[in-house]
Design a protein around this nucleic acid. Structure first.
Lengths: 199, 199
DNA sequence: CGACTTCTTGAACGCCTAGTCAAGAAGTCG
DNA sequence: CGACTTCTTGACTAGGCGTTCAAGAAGTCG
């Protein structure tokens, strides 16, 4: 069944990506439709036609954000030994922060920002966020379980508890970094966390 | 110099406390002046007269929030051994969450929420937040330094790095809890963190 | 009492918001 | 070509927002 009608003039995916950046750097509430129209060079009506209302647009951007992040997460943890990859995941916000000083770019984790701004008032946002967190802990716990079995990571507590703790650390770091990041202190803290996992 | 003119009919401090609760549970953007007028039973003009504009009102509430929290923090860490008090600080968000299920009450840490919503766009908010974080790490690092000297806490890394890590953990827990808290998993994660500090 | 000061009240202001819609443009299909 | 469908455009709507302000109320002070 061929698609008929006037073809869309903008690239939906690319527009979503740019909207993601805007939402990421400014937050949901502080990004107006007009901001999006200006930045994306797509008129209001077309945005509404392609993405529905603002909330749906935003949530789709969050889902895309997480999809990309999760891909990164999985590939970084698919290594042996595990701890270097894990360290890379934890230091990710620090590296993001370096990009920021160059241009005016996103800050923190979009899922974390969403948690603070929309959860728990918006049930759909709460689902997206909760699912993201669950997937993070599932993926990390799986990797830790393998590393425990290999004798690389201490088995003084369960991989699930370790993964949960790591979630807190990443999210905490992402959040706190927004207020100004002392890179040295952050890396020292991360090293302390990683060392605590060593067998 | 006696104060003349018509006396204020509401209790400024008590009103600020109730505004704090509202801002805490809904966030800055989602709390309108009208919401405040309704909840506080104080008319708009009086609020503006007493607190200035919305931003100043909010920031004053955040400062009050932190003042109360810091008092709690200091008293909980002024103990020997340190780790039980530290554990109490870390589990604080979990206990807050229990209150929530009873009535519709604040969630997360107000400073953390402010970080996500206003920082870094609002420089004054950024200052308030950054100062709060700095005070947290200073207080906690001081306590850890003493506990390291007493042989209670491991000295495999500096008290500053440990304190920084603990800041991430508390903030991460506060944030993630908004999306739904698995109390068991949270406590297991906290125990893992506290155990990691033990000498 | 009358002058002065501050607080209260709620209407009003201007602005910005998310969202809608009608008219026209640009394709496909018979 | 003409029918049909979808996308584009930007003016428009309705409502909510933070903020202001003038008029009156409630005190103090001489």
């Amino acid at each position: 069944m061929a698609r008929t009608g006037r073809p869309r003039e903008f690239d939906r995916e690319q527009t979503l990506e740019r909207a993601l950046e805007l939402f990421w750097s400014r937050g949901y509430g502080a990004t107006s439709i007009q901001d999006l129209v200006d930045a994306l060079a797509v008129e209001r009506g077309s945005l509404y036609g392609a993405f529905g209302d603002k909330r749906r647009f935003y949530l789709e951007a969050v889902r895309l954000y997480w999809q990309v992040y999760e891909r990164h997460l999985v590939s970084a943890l698919d290594t042996s030994p595990l701890l270097p990859g894990l360290r890379e995941i934890l230091t990710h916000p620090v590296r993001l922060d370096e990009l920021i000083s160059d241009r005016g770019v996103p800050q923190g984790c979009l899922v974390g920002n969403t948690t603070a701004e929309l959860v728990p008032q918006d049930s759909e946002a709460t689902e997206v966020v909760a699912r993201s967190y669950r997937r993070f802990t599932d993926i990390v716990a799986g990797a830790l379980r393998r590393a425990q079995a290999a004798g690389e990571v201490t088995d003084t507590c369960s991989p699930e508890a370790q993964a949960q703790l790591l979630l807190y650390i990443v999210q905490g770091l992402s959040l706190v970094s927004r207020a100004g990041l002392d890179k040295t202190a952050a890396l020292a803290a991360i090293d302390a966390a990683v060392d605590g996992l060593r067998a």
